[in-house]
Simulated scan of single mutants.
Amino acid sequence: MWNSAERLEVEPWASVDAFRSGTSHAFDDPLVAALMSLAPLKRLKGIGFLGAIDYLRHGSGRAGHRRRHNRLEHSLGVAHLANVYAREVGLPDNRRRLLLAASLLHDVGHGPLSHTLEPVFSDAFGIDHHSVTRDLITGDRRAGLGIAEVLAAEQVDIEEVLALIDGEHDGDVGFLFSNQINLDTLEGIMRCRAFIAPRPAYRGAERIALLWARGDHTAEGAFDEFWRLKHDIYTLFIGGPAGAALDTLAQTYMREHLSQFSPDDFLISETMLLRRHSELHGYLKVAARSQEKLREVVPKGWLRAPVERRRREFFIEKDTRLVNNAAINFRYRQTKTRSATTLADLLD
């Protein structure tokens, strides 16, 4: 297995309330405070983590399974895992802070309803969160004003941040963002698990990050368990009938009302978008109560129109041992398929 690292003291897991409120008190680093003070980061509090699927929850309650989550919480969660890993391994401060910056900024370009509406924005306007994230960080979009300046003031290399986010960093910490299992997907899948059922899931990601950092021989079992969880989350929840139906509903609405959208809408909050499109908001609220009722209220043509359904499945190559970080991409694999369906079929 991996070489063991010296055991270092790590920060305790920040409370869920800290992540909900978008505060940065869990991090003793001026870089985090400076980035969190910027409007592009604050906007993420108004961008749902799961897109249309978030509306399966009414948004009330404090527990993870009783409320919607947002992209700011997720970004803080990834930063926390980066901090835990870096301190456990004993990375120099400049490498740890690079990870913090990439973690906080990796989703800064997400649009309202997140991945749900992005395919339509991409088809209609050539916009996706990858290109917008890069433009915001470099300052090529005015909405990102301040990010490049903070990175420069805190002596964090902007090109390294971008390379990490793009999964193209070839240095000592690149694998933490580019591997099949990485800090982003660790946090995201565990957050999905917390959203689905009343079982604490946040600490599971921290445990894996610590085992990973220590090169512990039990990390393989923890990674296997995580990869099976990711398979279940995608096949039964995100890509399951309910998730696919809500994504299809919102995408169909946008395509049918495309003249009422503009490229600038990609950088507004979800609240503002749904205020402008009260009909879509109404459909999402109906879906949260009853998908059978949704069938009754949407236009009949939407129910019969063919749509593409994308599925992902995850499997483990058990003959490949987890002897180093490079082996992660050979042991943990996935397949992607596409098929034709209709909204009516998804609502059955």
Rank of each mutant, 00 (worst) to 15 (best):
W2A: 04
W2K: 10
S4Q: 10
E9C: 10
E11M: 11
E11C: 08
P12K: 08
W13I: 13
A14N: 02
R20I: 15
S24N: 08
D29R: 01
D29Y: 05
P30L: 05
A39G: 07
L41H: 09
K42E: 05
L44M: 15
L44S: 03
K45D: 04
I47A: 00
G48D: 02
L56C: 03
R62L: 15
G64V: 01
G64I: 00
G64Q: 07
H65N: 14
R67G: 12
R67Q: 07
R71F: 01
S75L: 01
G77Q: 02
N83Y: 11
Y85A: 06
R87Q: 12
E88H: 02
V89A: 11
L91D: 05
L91S: 06
N94G: 01
R96I: 04
L99P: 04
L100K: 10
L104Y: 03
L104T: 10
V108S: 04
V108D: 03
G111V: 07
L113W: 13
H115E: 05
E118G: 11
E118C: 08
S122C: 14
T133C: 14
D135E: 14
I137A: 06
G139T: 08
R142Q: 07
A143P: 06
G144A: 02
L145P: 01
I147F: 09
A153F: 12
E154W: 08
Q155H: 13
I158A: 14
I158W: 00
E159S: 14
E159A: 14
E159D: 15
E159V: 00
V161D: 10
A163C: 05
I165D: 04
H169Q: 10
V173K: 11
G174F: 01
G174D: 12
L176I: 03
Q180A: 15
D184H: 15
T185W: 01
T185G: 07
T185Q: 11
L186P: 04
E187N: 14
A194R: 06
A194C: 02
A205Y: 03
E206G: 05
A213M: 05
A213P: 06
D216K: 08
H217A: 09
T218Q: 11
G221E: 15
F223H: 00
E225Q: 09
W227E: 06
R228T: 06
H231N: 15
D232Q: 11
T235S: 12
L236C: 08
G239N: 05
G240R: 06
P241D: 15
G243N: 01
G243P: 00
L246N: 11
D247W: 00
T248P: 06
T248W: 13
L249Q: 12
A250L: 03
H257W: 00
I268F: 02
S269K: 03
M272L: 06
L273M: 15
S278I: 04
G282N: 13
R295V: 04
K300E: 13
V307H: 14
V307K: 12
E308S: 13
R309A: 08
R309G: 04
R309D: 07
R310S: 14
R311M: 03
R312K: 14
F315G: 00
F315P: 00
E317V: 13
K318D: 14
D319N: 13
T320F: 05
T320C: 01
R321P: 09
L322W: 10
L322N: 02
Y332G: 00
Q334P: 02
T337M: 10
A340C: 08
A340I: 14
T342M: 12
A344T: 13
A344D: 15
L346C: 12
D348K: 10
